[in-house]
Design a protein around this nucleic acid. Structure first.
Lengths: 179, 179
DNA sequence: AGTGCACTTGACCGGGCGGTCAACTGATGG
DNA sequence: CCATCAGTTGACCGCCCGGTCAAGTGCACT
């Protein structure tokens, strides 16, 4: 169960005890350690599942669009929508970033999303739709924008953050600076 | 002393014990608790100092430039350079983001940097140099880009990440999407 | 009703934490 | 040479954690 995710999101990884989780689930610790070999594994499992879900959502959103720019835009939008909907899980990414232990899983998941985006950017470059540049770096820049703006949105709750974020990203990959 | 910062950056907040810190400093715990009333205060102090230093560096970099766009660019560049130079301290921002306890200080420091940038963006808008929009949101977008790319740079060590990041940001605030 | 068994529980353990404070140190001045 | 004491130490305390496992529970079958 991922009420654990909520607890982690609320209090952080270390401050959330296994006792607290199993109590919330009204089960004994025994059951917990039957499903997961450790607290760390539970967290890892949640993270991995989250990335799977997010990726799936992106694929779904992109659908069969053929224009690389449309694919990028839909992917970005889907990521942000997903993050807002699953704010607890999204928060876990942040938590995991602060724990060296989880760096590798985080990196792996991030790499997946980034390389997808980078592929689309590469296509766009090949098609002459956008200026040449490092696609991976651009993908990371977009990831930075979306992540941070989702974070901000969850705190202050602006209205159309997603549209603005998408626009910012597209300008970043499309636009000529000051020719 | 902020060898503590290095330890925190390496191992995280919780896993780094006070015992470990004072041992590294070859002093007793007594001294530690004479300077700081708690581990939490130490961390808070480091964070606050870091933000002060970063802000100072930004001000220095901006100098007396009058063009708002130049001010923005210099500010962004200065932030990234500072982050790369003080990678340990930079890492602490990430750690703090994962600990609810430090959210307020983080928010405060972030707000400072963001509102500075937002002010410049506002000036640029008033001067007709960039299209109108929400300056705060744009500032946050830039912050997201820089933060994430610095992070990436520290891991993989690309070459001219900073220039690319600055360019991406400027495109984000300057450019017209696809008119 | 009695027996065995699959499954669950939560008291318990060793360990490590943040934080305290009695004991020690050595420089100072009479 | 000793008394004093500011400054420092690190053994120690209470607490709580992740993880274990003996004891308990109730169901299925005879």
């Amino acid at each position: 169960m991922e009420l654990a995710a909520k607890r982690f999101a609320e209090n952080g990884y270390h401050p959330t005890s296994v006792a607290e989780i199993v109590e919330g689930l009204s089960v004994g610790k025994g059951v917990f350690y039957w499903y997961f070999s450790s607290k760390e594994e539970l967290f890892t499992e949640i993270l991995a599942g989250a990335y799977r879900d997010l990726r799936h959502r992106q694929g779904e959103a992109i659908g069969d669009a053929s224009d690389p720019l449309v694919r990028i835009e839909r992917g970005v939008r889907a990521s942000m929508e997903w993050s807002v909907e699953h704010r607890d899980v999204f928060r876990l990414f942040q938590l995991a970033a602060g724990e060296a232990r989880f760096a590798s899983i985080l990196r792996k998941g991030e790499k997946g999303a980034v390389s997808d985006a980078a592929r689309h950017i590469q296509s766009a470059m090949d098609a002459g739709l956008v200026p040449r540049g490092d696609p991976i770096l651009l993908a990371h820049a977009m990831l930075g924008v979306t992540t941070h703006l989702v974070q901000r949105h969850l705190l202050d709750g602006g209205k159309q953050v997603i549209d603005d974020a998408v626009a910012f990203c597209m300008r970043g990959v499309l636009g000529q600076p000051d020719a």
